[in-house]
């Protein structure tokens, strides 16, 4: 007579599974709205550092376009561009690109460029660089990225877009030169892309949700 305990065990398991599922479903229902709002707020907030000192219309995230590979922006993954407007005329473009050749894998960087081709801000979104060395490219850890604000392809001219050790104009980080090199190259390539596209970037219609990918 081994049928009965098996039956009983099965029923207990099913009952507890049902209770647990209900518990998770209820929590999900109660938190869903807040979680979606948080994600949206986080995205908006993460774009802000690249727009310091600019006046612009709200709803920057609505003007998103996804540039699938192959493209001339840094990185082999899809790049994202947000167009920034003030009273409906273009002010700047935000690029989310992948800097390759980081010390420990790709680095996701947010780069803001205004219509004149000047950098409005750089912010590292995602990386796996060594804590204490390469991770000082993070805005929260040091202000290394601030040196790019206001720079453009004429300031400095092309050979200057490198760290000082390589004969360029930008500071390296003590103990880390691979990470700064990767980021400087990404900024330079983004500026070159922006210059080649010109105002055209602001004419592209907003992407459909279906071809979203490689973000976050």
């Amino acid at each position: 007579m081994s049928g009965r305990p098996v039956m009983r065990g099965g029923i207990t398991l099913a009952a507890i599974a049902a209770i647990c599922t209900a518990m998770v479903a209820l929590t999900f229902r109660l938190t869903e709205e807040r979680i979606i709002a948080n994600e949206q707020a986080w995205l908006e907030r993460s774009l802000e550092p690249a727009l310091s000192g600019l006046f612009y219309d709200s709803g920057v995230t609505e003007s998103k376009i996804v540039v699938p590979p192959p493209h001339e922006l840094p990185g082999s993954e899809a790049a994202i561009i947000y167009r920034v407007y003030a009273e409906d005329s273009p002010v700047a473009a935000l690029f989310v690109v992948t800097a390759r050749n980081g010390y420990a894998g790709p680095i996701r960087v947010l780069i803001g460029v205004d219509v004149a081709g000047t950098v409005t801000g750089v912010h590292v979104l995602e990386h796996r660089e060594t804590p204490g060395l390469g991770d000082r490219v993070e805005t929260a850890k040091s202000d290394w990225v601030v040196q790019f604000d206001g720079r453009s392809l004429v300031d400095p001219e092309m050979p200057g877009w490198a760290i000082k050790r390589d004969g360029g104009q930008f500071d390296q980080l003590t103990g880390a030169s691979v990470t700064p090199r990767a980021i400087i190259n990404a900024i330079r390539d983004t500026l070159v892309y922006f210059e080649s596209q010109g105002e055209g970037i602001f004419a592209i219609p907003v992407a459909t949700e279906s071809d979203e990918g490689g973000n976050e």
Binding site: G9, T12, I16, M23, V24, T27, F28, T31, R34, N38
Partner: peptide, 26 residues
């Protein structure tokens, strides 16, 4: 039943962790 206690513990703990994670996320 003692035979099925471990799966039940895992079930309970996993559900609780999922709830906590949602709450933290929110």
């Amino acid at each position: 039943l003692s035979e099925i206690r471990i799966p039940i513990y895992v079930l309970i703990i996993a559900s609780l962790v999922t709830c906590i994670e949602l709450i933290f996320e929110a």
